[in-house]
């Protein structure tokens, strides 16, 4: 505590939980996750450039338990960041700022990201045949 105990402005734990703070925090969190996930993109491209052996390594990692788990998380992060990014761009144009709209399109983004992730992985599992 500082010498003069003046009141501080309220911080996160003071506020009632609301979707607005969640969408904002998740946008940053998924952004950081995706920045780390650029390694997936980079490794895949470098492997494809390097030859069949490296490409087989990448494919094998993608099919492993850990690989599938990471790719699943990456898919959801991308779906969420893409949808919420679209929402932010629309907000830049002045759209969807009324509180009830803001709350509704926040939930739409969260639900949409989960639906997109499921759809993508249904396609993946259908195409790569089982595990």
């Amino acid at each position: 505590m500082s010498a003069n105990a003046r009141p501080l402005s309220p911080h996160i734990q003071i506020y009632r939980w609301q979707i607005q703070m969640m969408t904002s925090i998740l946008h940053r969190a998924t952004g950081i996750a995706l920045a780390a996930g650029t390694l997936v993109l980079l490794c895949s491209l470098l492997a494809l450039a390097a030859g069949p052996e490296r490409w087989a390594d990448v494919a094998a990692f993608g099919r492993s338990g850990l690989g599938t788990f990471l790719l699943l998380g990456w898919t959801w992060s991308l779906a969420y960041h893409w949808l919420n990014g679209l929402r932010h761009l629309l907000q830049d144009l002045g759209w969807g700022y009324r509180i009830e709209q803001f709350v509704r399109n926040g939930w739409l983004v969260v639900a949409g990201s989960l639906i997109l992730t499921i759809l993508v992985w249904v396609c993946v599992f259908a195409q790569r045949g089982g595990a």
């Binding site: 494809l48 490409w55 991308l78 893409w82 990014g85 679209l86 761009l89 195409q127 790569r128």
Partner: peptide
Amino acid sequence: AVALLLLVPWLLWLVLKLVTLDFAAA
């Protein structure tokens, strides 16, 4: 952001196609 808004759906299409291909085809 706008560039990626357009490119990410294309990347998704590309990746879903890559899943089915061997090295030479990929």
